[in-house]
């Protein structure tokens, strides 16, 4: 593989890792607070659809983003009501949300735009364009190292930078603020938090709101930054990969970033390797690479390489004692 190919795979890795990372961090907030979230996929899909629909109609990317955030946030609230207030089964709530998202976005898309469930292509100003970092052109001239800056780090939409910025912010919030301490405590031992006079359910709702917003960003990235418009089931299981990454990272922010980069890299590699015969091993079946994130997660969960243990109170609605 030559240098330009490697450069382009690395750039693609960042692009593919971005929605995974946003969704993964989204899941991190809610799961660290003790609310299991299988519905990352559904929230992203809702956000992708409404962001593209509004951006296509208004021609304004910011309104699109706002719609995406709103859609994801409302979905998160529905899930929150089911999982926190009504003390329902959190896993089933997530399954329902994912199914609802696939059905409703296709249904509304077809009824509103009549293009087989797609939204119309975005007009000028409806899409977040790549940002050139300062001096990208000049530094790009430097052999070997230049393209790393000009073509890998520079030239992405704002979402990519936001996603990676969210990692240190999340780490700080989680480990260095009062909010983070309480969030983690609510996920590990809600009774203790309750005894300390903090409202458990309110904390969990706050976490779910953050989850909704981050999923909204991830979804909007699909339809109004990476792509131009919404297509049927556009998120294509990325929400589940993000969930896998979250487990893989043992619910910690920096490992989450590396897990998402790894899974993003596999995605980028898989597209490159399609139909290419490799030396020694011959043609690698793309399906093997596609399945790798899931296989790795299963192996990790089974404790064959390290052990992934989730937040102790995860999945259990909190009932106050009388």
């Amino acid at each position: 593989m030559d240098w330009p190919t490697i450069i382009s795979i690395l750039a693609a890795t960042l692009r593919f890792a971005t929605p995974l990372l946003l969704a993964c961090l989204a899941g991190l907030y809610s799961e660290r607070a003790g609310v299991f979230d299988i519905g990352l996929e559904g929230k992203m899909l809702f956000a992708a659809f409404f962001a593209a629909a509004v951006a296509a109609v208004t021609g304004n990317m910011w309104l699109g983003l706002l719609a995406g955030l709103g859609a994801s946030l409302s979905t998160a609230m529905v899930q929150g009501v089911a999982a926190i207030t009504l003390k329902g089964n959190q896993i089933i709530a997530g399954v329902a949300i994912n199914m609802l998202a696939v059905g409703l976005t296709t249904f509304l898309g077809q009824s509103w735009f009549r293009q087989g469930g797609r939204t119309p292509p975005l007009p000028q100003g409806g899409r977040f364009l790549p940002i050139q970092l300062p001096f990208a052109a000049e530094i790009g001239q430097i052999p070997y190292i230049g393209p790393l800056y000009a073509n890998v780090l520079s030239g992405h939409s704002i979402f990519v930078y936001l996603a990676f910025l969210a990692v240190p912010i999340t780490a700080y919030v989680l480990y260095r603020t009062r909010f983070g301490l309480r969030l983690r405590a609510v996920g590990e031992n809600p009774k203790a938090v309750d005894t300390a006079g903090i409202a458990v359910n309110l904390m969990r709702y706050k976490a779910v709101v953050v989850t909704g917003l981050l999923c909204g960003l991830a979804g909007a990235y699909f339809s109004i930054a990476q792509g131009s418009g919404f297509g049927n089931n556009m998120t294509a299981g990325k929400g589940y990969i993000a969930l896998a990454a979250l487990i893989f990272a043992k619910w910690k922010p920096y490992p989450a970033m590396f897990a998402c980069l790894l899974f993003g890299f596999l995605d980028a590699l898989q597209i490159r390797l399609q139909g290419v015969a490799m030396p020694v091993i011959g043609q690698v079946p793309v399906q093997a690479i596609q399945a790798l994130p899931y296989v790795l997660t299963v192996i990790l969960l089974a404790g064959f390489i390290g052990k992934a243990v989730g937040p102790k109170a995860g999945g259990v609605p909190y009932t106050k004692e009388r």
Partner: peptide, 9 residues
């Protein structure tokens, strides 16, 4: 699924 499974309450 949502109502029977997760919103029994």
């Amino acid at each position: 699924i949502l109502f029977t499974g997760a919103m029994e309450g």
